[in-house]
Design a protein around this nucleic acid. Structure first.
Lengths: 153, 153
DNA sequence: TGCAAATGGTTTCATATGAAACTATAAAGG
DNA sequence: CCTTTATAGTTTCATATGAAACCATTTGCA
């Protein structure tokens, strides 16, 4: 049994944060919990990291992106994208063409194998999202969307 | 100027995720953006990592915790806590006593120096939180609290 | 043109991280 | 008791990560 710990006395001149009511902390816990649950679904099964999956998801949505564009769309570091692409190309999940008018740029696409994995993972990810949203009622879901739109804009 | 990329045609048999509307992804972006903004405030200035700050925040709130209890309260890995504590103790920001009845357990507290840092960082963290919340109106803030309570419970 | 600055992408290096093994102590059961 | 099992915490090892340096190419402009 865990002993109840006494909080710092109210007489203290310090004003400690209450992490459990602190927005950034709560968002961090929630985000990590959800992302981890999804990752657990595919990570070992497909030998696919979270960054790799995000790259694949973007390439499923937009064909022929460059690495830089992928980084933009995923909000990931360009180094992370470069490494994810190296692994994905190595595994034959992504093809890297060369841009016609700019030899620096790559032209990225999912391969057949990439699409096959995408088509299995995407529904799992969506299912997890639904599980989370199912804990809210319709009104709460609408507010959540609106609030996230505002904070992310 | 960035070229508009064509999404995968609607005729495609695949159903790509739209990351920009995908809850886990949006939460992750929001959480990272906010946490990073706060970390930028203290990281270099106090040579303090995010994990170290979280440990300090918990010790400010609850005195005499053990390392395990800190890990529980921060939702951090025990290895991460162990390392954060090593650095904090080394820097004289946290004291590690030994538990009377259990020589395995440590008894952790902020030192004077630790409190001094806490008392500077905590207000900065709170200010950042206020900045974020200020982008919402009162009704939205209330819903956000309610939604997070529900999803985190 | 031709050269400086910018851009796409990769590599290097130093640091961060987590799982598993490990040490020390405590609790539980025969 | 004394042996097994559990717990607190640290260390090790292998991997992940990001900043900065780097290479190649392209762009801007004198």
């Amino acid at each position: 049994m865990s002993v109840k710990r006494k909080p710092t006395p109210a007489t203290a001149e310090h004003a400690p944060l209450q992490l459990e009511h602190f927005l950034p902390y709560r968002l961090s816990i929630l985000s990590n919990t959800i992302s981890q649950a999804i990752a657990d679904d595919y990570q070992q099964r497909y030998d696919l990291s979270v960054t790799e999956w995000r790259v694949m998801a973007v390439l499923a949505r937009f064909e022929g992106l460059s690495a830089r564009e992928v980084a933009e769309r995923t909000a990931m570091d360009k180094v992370a994208v470069s490494r994810a692409l190296a692994r994905l190309a190595e595994a034959g999940r992504v093809s890297r063409g060369m841009h016609d008018n700019d030899k620096r740029r790559s032209v990225l696409d999912l391969t057949e194998a990439g699409w096959a994995i995408h088509d299995e993972v995407a529904p799992m990810a969506r299912a997890r999202e639904r599980e989370v949203l199912a804990r809210l009622d319709a009104e709460e879901r609408a507010w959540l969307t609106r609030i996230l739109d505002k904070l992310l804009s």
